[in-house]
């Protein structure tokens, strides 16, 4: 390959770098850190404000396809119409899908944790959030339990700040 540098075989300088200008690959350190202010928009703002102020989970109803979309949004992408009919949905639902995050990556939550899509009662769609309180000693055992698509409930944080992390799910059966 013409672009692969020849292995350095020249003399090493005192600082350990080679003195061969042809062979020594140069790298520079860079950063990729750009600040943004994301506008949630009217629908998501109301969804978050309802979480923070009233501990309620709200969806919007599309009159064309008759779905209650949760979390709430201002248009239905399937029917391509604006929507603004608000519905409160239940705080219990079904865990439709999940994964157990088992490996640590910089910038992501410390494992092991469970995230899953839950369809709350009265909603037509599922929403993603953390699932707390699962015994994760044995991943395969925990997985087998969660594969039964158990019922879960919403648990709000002590201090809601208007973010999706204001709530998580836990198994309904856990304290049954």
């Amino acid at each position: 390959m013409s672009s692969t540098p020849v292995p350095p075989d020249g003399d090493a300088a005192a600082d350990g770098s080679t003195t061969d200008p042809v062979a020594e690959p140069v790298t520079i350190q860079g950063h990729w850190d750009f600040g943004y202010t994301y506008f949630a928009g009217a629908s998501a703002s109301r969804f978050f404000n309802e979480l923070r102020l009233n501990q309620r989970i709200m969806g919007t109803h599309c009159p064309t396809c008759d779905r209650v979309l949760v979390p709430a949004r201002g248009f239905c992408d399937a029917c391509y119409v604006e929507i603004d009919e608000w519905r409160e949905v239940g705080t219990e639902g079904t865990l439709d899908s999940f994964t157990i995050l088992t490996t640590s990556f910089p910038g992501l939550p410390e494992p092991p944790t469970v995230v899953g899509y839950v369809t709350l009662d009265g909603a037509s769609t599922a929403l993603l959030n953390a699932v707390h309180g699962i015994d994760l000693h044995d991943f395969d055992e925990a997985g087998a339990l969660l594969l039964t698509q158990p019922r879960v409930r919403v648990v709000f944080s002590d201090k809601c700040e208007g973010r999706i992390t204001d709530f998580a799910f836990e198994l309904v059966a856990a304290d049954a």
Partner: peptide, 20 residues
């Protein structure tokens, strides 16, 4: 400019809807 009532997807939806 910085219209807090609209997310990026809201802005896109409204404009494309108008074009259609």
């Amino acid at each position: 400019w910085a219209d807090g009532s609209a997310s990026l997807t809201d802005l896109i939806f409204r404009c494309v809807r108008r074009a259609l």
